[in-house]
Amino acid sequence: MLGGTYVALIAAMVLADIFYISPSHLGKALASREIRYAIQLSLVTCTITAALSLLVAIPLGYLLARGNFRGKALVDAIIDIPIVLPPLVIGLSLLILFQLKLGGQSLESWLTRMGFPVTYRVPAVILAQFAVCGAFAVRTMRVSFEQINPRSEQVALTLGCSQAQAFWRVTLPEARRGVLTAATLAWARALGEFGPILVFAGATRMRTEVLSTSVFLELSVGSIETAVAVSLLMIVAAIIVLALLRFFAAENLFHRGRP
């Protein structure tokens, strides 16, 4: 009964959004240059974040699943930090890290001199998303590697593979559903990220505005209909991503049985 109430609450929230606006509000939002820029930036940054998350999640997830090294518990605990910390704190920590002066100059001023400024720019959006989403991707990949029989890799070694060949030829293909799940999850998390982006990248229109920031900016000027329209766009994107996630998870379950 209590469970049913919760499901009803979620469904009611989405329905309320749908009924609050008319198709014309949605059309108006989509016609806005700023919103179109935010959609575009969201799609680009979420995709880059998902790719970066996979890049760290595959080796790190594998190491945590299979490795037995000194400091493993510490690495494991550090990866939990972005998951448990309030998002605003992650943004603030990133800001402090880039502005902290060491040896007379900050990381940001050094990067600016190198021609790659980060803070309050698009790279800050990606880094803010990545700081959170990477952790979720690592967790997903770790579980995925843990479900794979390590003996397959051992057999590959006896058949002449190096450790790297065994990983690329046997383990990674078996983890492909996990890779897709981790990428999808990272993408979806990145789409919903707001706190760290607001603090580290700002909310400048036509510059660092992503969809979550659009909702905030529209609300702050009292344009509730546009805020709800943008929210609906995010809900649709999230539903598509969740459907893909379910599909990959179901496939994983189906293929789990071993001969």
């Binding site: 029989n149 003996r151 397959s152 051992q154 046997v170 071993r258």
Partner: peptide, 10 residues
């Protein structure tokens, strides 16, 4: 080598 659980490449 043939392991106990066969460990075929799935």
């Amino acid at each position: 080598y043939v392991p106990q659980d066969r460990a075929l490449f799935l």
